[in-house]
Every structure is written in C-alpha cells, then in structure tokens.
Simulated assay, not measured.
Amino acid sequence: MTSNPIERVTDIIDPGDALGEVLFGLIMALTLTVGSRLVFEEEGLDAQELIVATVGCNVAWGIIDAVLFVLGTTFYKSRRLRLFRQIKAAGSETAALNMLAKEFPIEEAPFSAKAADADPLYRSLLTLARRADPVRASLSKNDLLAALAVVFLVSVTSIPAVTPLFLIDSAHLALRVSNLFLIMLLFVTGYAWAKFSGGRPFYAGMTMTCLGLLLVAIAVALGG
C-alpha cells in the first residue's frame, strides 16, 4: 500500500522535528506578512515584492536550518563515537557504567523505574559497547534526506502565505486573508503535534496558536 505524504516525511525525519520546522516556517512567514501590513500603509509596498520576499526568506532560512541540522547530526554522532571509545578505554567496569548512566539517565525518562532495574540495563549496554567495533561517524543517506526535508518543510510554509496575494487584487485584503490562513495553520500544527505525542489536540492547537502569535509579536516589535 502506498503511504501518504505525511507518512513519507515522518519516515525521513522525526515527527517532532518535522512539526517544529513547519512551526518555524509559519512563524517566519507570519512575521513577514504582519510586518508588511505596516509597510504597506507607510510606503505602499508592491505585492509582487512581498511574494518574492516571503518565499525567498523561507527558502533561505530553510537552507540555513538544514545546514544547522547537518551540523547537529554530525556533532551527535561524533559525541556518541567519543563516548564509545571512552567506554572501551575505561580503566574499570564501574567507570564505564558511570559514563553510561551519565549519558543515558533513566531519571529523565517518562516513566517511574526502580533503581534495581537500572544496573542490568547499563550492564547490557556495556556488554554491547565492549563487543562492538567503532564505526566512522559520517552522514548517511537518511541524514541528507532529512536535511532536504527541513528545506522543504520550511520553504513550503510560504505557499499559504503568498497564495492570497495571487488570488486577491486588494493587497490589504490579501494580507488579512494570508494572516488568517497562517494562524489557522498554527492551530493545525499544534493539533497534529498532540496527535503524534498523545496530548490533547484542541488544547495543543490553541497553545501553539497563542505561542506562535506571541513569538510573531515579539519579532515584529523588535524589527524582525
């Protein structure tokens, strides 16, 4: 059976990361369009210029975010490789177990675990680490696909922002429709977030909408 587009994206990039990129793109587009309403009144900004600016801004930040994603992934893999080598070189079993406990604390897990269960877990990880061989920390095909997904997700959020500018002659009305559409998508993003994480969809949607609007207000107020 052919998977839907959402499943294809979440097969490449973690759903939380994907929704975070969508949220970032929506906030970027909303910040630009809300700020442009002020410019329209003062300078009469051309709608064509706004379309180019909105799409260009989101594409540029999509590329920047993808580069940061690649750097973060490289750092994570290198850090894990360093930990593996430290465990192999540890002077004692106790020291190696302490390294694992520090790197993978079960106290932060979303469940209540007994202390007696932690020791077998870390000993199993230690056995695995000692028997395994180090592998060079390099970017995989999936990592590069995930970076492309970041570019796509941030860039594509500019489409609902600029579509009204193509369909509506009045720039002021088009911007209002664009802003309303983006605000609705903030709610949809929060709703989807809860669906993936097991939260309350309507509550998450309202929270995401309010949070997004607050961030947009801060960005506009600071000249972003």
Rank of each mutant, 00 (worst) to 15 (best):
L173D: 15
L144A: 11
A147C: 07
R80G: 01
A132P: 00
S112F: 12
L144W: 12
S140Y: 11
V150Q: 00
R85I: 05
K102L: 09
L173A: 12
S155M: 00
S124M: 11
D169Q: 10
H172A: 14
A115M: 13
H172I: 08
D169P: 04
L125W: 14
K77R: 13
G91W: 06
L126N: 05
A146K: 08
D143K: 04
A171N: 11
S112N: 10
L125Y: 09
A95V: 11
E107Y: 12
A89L: 11
T163P: 01
A109K: 12
A90R: 04
G91M: 03
F69S: 02
K102T: 04
E103I: 05
S170C: 08
A149P: 07
L165E: 03
L139P: 03
R130A: 04
P160M: 06
A118E: 15
D169G: 12
L165T: 05
F166R: 01
F75G: 04
V162G: 00
R136K: 11
K102G: 07
A149G: 07
E103H: 15
L121T: 10
N98K: 15
Y122F: 11
F166A: 07
P120G: 08
A132D: 10
P110Y: 02
L97V: 08
V154T: 08
R123H: 11
P160I: 03
L121I: 15
P105T: 11
F84L: 14
A118Y: 14
L167W: 02
N142D: 14
A132S: 14
D117C: 08
S124W: 04
K114T: 08
P105S: 10
V154L: 05
F69M: 03
P105Q: 06
I159D: 00
L83Y: 10
A101Y: 07
S140H: 10
A161Q: 00
L81T: 11
